[in-house]
Design a protein around this nucleic acid. Structure first.
Lengths: 138, 138
DNA sequence: GCCCTATTGGTAATAATTCCTATTACTGAT
DNA sequence: ATCAGTAATAGGAATTATTACCAATAGGGC
């Protein structure tokens, strides 16, 4: 949690019990929890926490780079897995899955510089069949 | 418009004046209009059209592949530019811009097959500085 | 033109996210 | 340790994009 308390202080934020527990709970989740799901999990430990605090906390954690926000579909999801990975959205069952593998050929971000874009990071979303649905089709 | 009328019929949809004009107006827009902006533009030509019809029309057009839906930020945006291109979200001014260039090295989608994923298409979102903001920084 | 059914318009409902305000709790300095 | 100043919180209400609903209308195959 040192990265949290120091990260917060560096940006002028405060290290609060709520934010610590929000981060802990996001890290416990396996599958891209929504703000509401995180709220429910945190609420067990902090029964008085409000949904607004969770939203604000998630925003701060995202800003600090301690979690990732995945915007897809009707609500945002959060992800504490910071290793390079991409997301597959199954066009059959509509699930969001991790593809835990870096690209075999990393994307050359320099190529966009010629057009004036300075790329800092990128996100790849793959659409197709997840392993389960792909098997069922064959 | 033949691709629209035939595409619609193929899927059991009907070719209506509303859908035709929605497509025409999306094609007129340069910068990823929102559903509301399309609604406003269509409303000039069809003053009685309802927002729900525009949403439904955009959904059908997206399903037929005649337009693309770009989900980012607080609302969805639509794009009639079907040429391969990617999107840059400027981390400074928060604008969504087209990067009208295919990748110098196309993404190898076969690499995911080994993990059981059958990739049909993919979307790359670049985050960084747009030409305007990049210039202002230097 | 007739009939069947998808579509429309208008409105109400839904749901994610943000906003507002009084209260509480850190923080840094004394 | 106490105090003052400031930022964060809880709780609820407000906002807003998107969907759902339903009676009336209009494609389009015959």
């Amino acid at each position: 949690m040192k990265e949290l308390s120091e990260g917060l202080r560096q940006e002028g934020y405060r290290f609060t019990r709520q934010r610590r527990i929000i981060l802990e709970e996001v890290r416990k989740q396996q599958y891209h929890p929504s703000a509401k799901e995180i709220y429910d999990a945190v609420k067990i430990r902090l029964p008085n926490i409000s949904l607004g605090t969770v939203y604000r906390g998630l925003g701060v954690l995202t800003e600090l780079g301690l979690i990732r926000k995945v915007e897809h579909g009707e609500y945002a999801r959060f992800d504490a897995n910071l290793a390079e990975h991409h997301h597959l959205i199954c066009t059959d069952c509509d699930q969001l899955l991790d593809v835990d593998a870096p690209l075999s050929e990393p994307l050359n971000t320099q190529q966009f510089k010629a057009r004036g874009f300075e790329v800092q990071r990128y996100k790849i979303e793959l659409y197709g069949l997840c392993p389960t649905c792909a098997t069922e089709r064959s």
